[in-house]
Design a protein around this nucleic acid. Structure first.
Lengths: 238, 238
DNA sequence: CGTGGGGTTGATTCTTATCAATTCGGGTGG
DNA sequence: CCACCCGAATTGATAAGAATCAACCCCACG
């Protein structure tokens, strides 16, 4: 399989051969996970980071009452668990949405990379900053947007992250996953979806969204993709 | 004035004299801001980062409909605007809560520090990871906690961040600020506060919280401060 | 054929928003 | 020193949005 993580890094900067090698070393040990398998659990020691080769993954946290909040959805090529750099214990679990191939590697390896390449360190920092802006957008949805706006925004964000111009998005998500992401119940997602369908904005069936009216959806969501477009100019030359 | 930012960095690692100098250079140009003054606005070019010398500051984002969400509250010593490292445009504004002294400096200076000291780079990365975990906790409040839990959690988080064992917290906040942070209305904050007071958990007057029953508050909030305690062991030696 | 996970629908309740009126309290100017 | 004013907080009445509970449908899969 072509290295997902290399092409992820390449989407930020050009890699020298040596850098390429360094990055590749993060994707050496592919492991398969079944749908709904817990890749790491809350409270586990924060020693292992994962790179996703294929499939989607969610990081989530549970409250004492059992409520689950999905913090972020990760797509192939992404590094999962970078927050763990700063902590001894993993504070959220990572779950496979559908079948997944992911490569675990010790946190130490990533830190080692910092020693070897200040340039890659800067890319990692950029990734952290970008993840923050995803979290910020989630906060906006949870705190200020109504369910229909949030849902529209969520779909548009996914589409932008998938870098596709297709109006049909195939996902391994369920309505319950979406609900736990947007902080509402799955029942409410169902109703909201039929609402949006009646308004000829969006359809959902069997795991795929079909965008019926892109402009109206963007308008409803107030979607501005600039938070997904990083600035790489400050990163030093090789 | 003693350098706030140096002591902030010192709370993570010991600084060599040289590092100390580097860090100090980030706090050279103190400027005063009035209460409610906008320090930077959404859409401004993301060139300037701030270090807070005194006072509190909030970063917030507005929606098209005028709704405001406060993303984070920053205390003296903290670096504000690190997310901007990754973007050309500032995607949220920074507002002075009460009178503030803050030191602006070009983003480039921070990046320059990365060249000069891999060790400080690692501290900055740790700060980013820690900010993420604050955002995550906010997401949990917005998405899954009821207003009273969120409020209790918010107060306990503040107390932990202020590193005080006092049960009285003096803040420059208003109920409206708190409301915009927790994603509810100020009216609802008012009601929730009187609720908590009736239950002898918490009092509020003239900008200070008085914790009446710490244990019960921790229990209600499900508060676990470990997300505020970074792991610094991986940072390289000087 | 059952079985079960995912989705839909309806009835009802609960939390929070909204709008509006009122109070409180600390400054300011006469 | 008092009257006034303003921002902040409180209170009440009502409405909207979302949760909850429960029943039911659909359909892929053993």
């Amino acid at each position: 399989m072509k290295s997902c993580i290399v092409s992820e890094f390449r989407s930020y900067i050009d890699l020298t051969d040596q850098e390429c090698e360094l990055v590749q070393s993060l994707e050496r040990d592919p492991r398969e996970f079944r749908k709904d398998e817990i890749i790491t659990a809350e409270g586990d020691p924060a020693k292992t980071i994962f790179t996703i080769s294929s499939g989607w993954v969610a990081s989530c946290r549970h409250l004492a009452n059992g409520n689950r909040q999905i913090l972020d959805v990760y797509l192939p090529g992404q590094i999962v668990g970078m927050r763990k750099i700063g902590f001894e214990q993993s504070m959220n679990s990572i779950v496979a949405i559908g079948p997944v191939v992911a490569c675990p590697y010790p946190k130490r390896n990533l830190i080692k990379t910092f020693d070897d390449s200040p340039r890659l360190t800067e890319v990692v920092m950029l990734m952290l900053a970008q993840q923050q802006s995803l979290l910020v957008e989630r906060i906006m949805s949870l705190g200020q947007r109504s369910a229909d706006c949030s849902l529209a925004h969520f779909v548009l964000e996914l589409r932008a992250r998938l870098k596709t111009s297709d109006l049909n998005l195939k996902t391994p998500l369920t309505q319950e996953l979406i609900a736990d992401t947007l902080g509402v119940t799955s029942v409410h997602i169902s109703r909201t979806l039929t609402d949006l369908t009646q308004k000829s904005l969006l359809e959902w069936s069997a795991g795929t969204f079909k965008i019926l009216n892109l402009d109206a959806l963007v308008e409803l969501a107030g979607f501005d993709p600039s938070y997904l477009e990083p600035d790489v100019n400050w990163i030093r030359d090789p």
